[in-house]
């Protein structure tokens, strides 16, 4: 189980590196889709069917948007001119990443290990099925115990839709 998850994660990292370095934008988008669908398999292995269902639909719609944007404009990645400045930027970012990795290693030390999560809140939520009456515990958490978060999410989606319509129409009136 953990080995399987590690193998899929390794493939996802390779696909992500390819997506960043691909010469053609369309193949970069396809590689990003590989990462997204690999995430679906990880969610299924982690016993999370709800978010696997959402992720597989949302990934498809994201790919449609991205392919529509890229087919409309140029497909070529910019010609890579190797100069000294670029090396400096890459070296600085690798240094930055190493510092981040060091601090992440210290942060996850007090966490419970993988698969040994302590059930402080989860037991209360599981018993809460008797109060809400919903046997899908995720739906009970979404709309009863933590309804404020979900309402905020709905408002963010609303704002994003309004923003997209507004930006696309900036020159429409002229």
């Amino acid at each position: 189980m953990e080995l399987m998850l590690a193998v899929i994660l390794g493939f996802m990292i390779i696909a992500a590196i390819y997506a960043i370095h691909a010469k053609d934008l369309l193949s970069a988008i396809i590689a990003q889709g590989f990462v997204g669908y690999g995430l679906v398999i990880c969610f299924l292995l982690l016993r999370a069917p709800d978010i696997a269902l959402v992720q597989i639909v949302v990934e498809t719609i994201t790919l449609i948007f991205m392919v529509a944007v890229v087919l409309d404009s140029t497909r070529k990645e910019l010609d890579v001119q190797v100069d000294r400045k670029q090396y400096r930027i890459a070296g600085l970012s690798v240094l930055f990443m190493l510092v981040l990795l060091f601090y992440f290693n210290r942060i996850i030390a007090p966490l419970d290990g993988f698969g040994e999560h302590s059930m402080r809140m989860a037991e209360a939520y599981a018993e809460g099925a008797g109060q809400t009456g919903a046997i899908n515990l995720v739906a009970g958490v979404l709309w009863d115990f933590r309804g404020y978060d979900t309402l905020g999410e709905a408002v963010v989606l609303f704002a994003a839709a309004i923003g997209v319509v507004t930006i696309f129409r900036l020159t429409g009136k002229n």
């Binding site: 978010i51 959402v54 599981a126 958490v141 979404l142 933590r146 978060d149 999410e153």
Partner: peptide, 17 residues
Amino acid sequence: PVVDPLPQAMVLTAIVI
């Protein structure tokens, strides 16, 4: 034992955002 539903609910909203 069931897995913790709270992180799953958070991820569910985060994906749509």
